[in-house]
Amino acid sequence: MAAISRNEVANLARLARISMSDAELDHLAGEMDVILGAVARVQEVAGADVPPTSHPLAVSNVTRDDVVTPSLTPEQALSGAPASSEQRFKVPKILGEE
C-alpha cells in the first residue's frame, strides 16, 4: 500500500500554498511515496528514552538589549516589494466580494 495518497499530497500542497497541476500532483505523489519509504527508517532505531535534538547548540532565548540601532528606511524596506503604496506593502484583495 502506498505510504501517501494523491489526495494527501494535494492537501499538503494546499497547506503549503502551492498551486499544482494534475500532472505535477501525479508525479509528486509517486516520488513522495518512494522518499517516505526510505526516510521511514528513522523509526527503527531510537527508543522512547532518547531525547530529541533540535539544534546543535544548547542556547535558548538569546536576546539583545532593548536599544534603538540604525535600521532600514521605509523606502529600503519596501524596495523589493512587488507593489507598495503610501509606505506600505500593497497586497491583493483579502476579503471576498459581498
Binding site: 501517501i4 494527501e8 499530497v9 499538503l12 500542497a13 497547506l15 503549503a16 502551492i18 509528486l28 513522495m32 522518499i35 517516505l36 526516510v39 521511514a40 528513522v42 523509526q43 532505531v45 531510537a46 532518547v50 531525547p51 530529541p52 535534538t53 533540535s54
Partner: peptide
C-alpha cells in the same frame, strides 16, 4: 511538501520527532 508532511499532526512523532532522536544518537 515533504517537510509539511513530516511536521503535520499525526505524522510529527513518527517522522520529525524520530529524526530529532536520531540526531541525538
Amino acid at each position: 511538501i515533504l517537510g509539511t508532511y513530516a511536521l503535520s499532526s499525526g505524522y510529527y512523532d513518527a517522522y520529525y520527532g524520530s529524526a530529532q532522536k536520531v540526531r541525538t544518537l
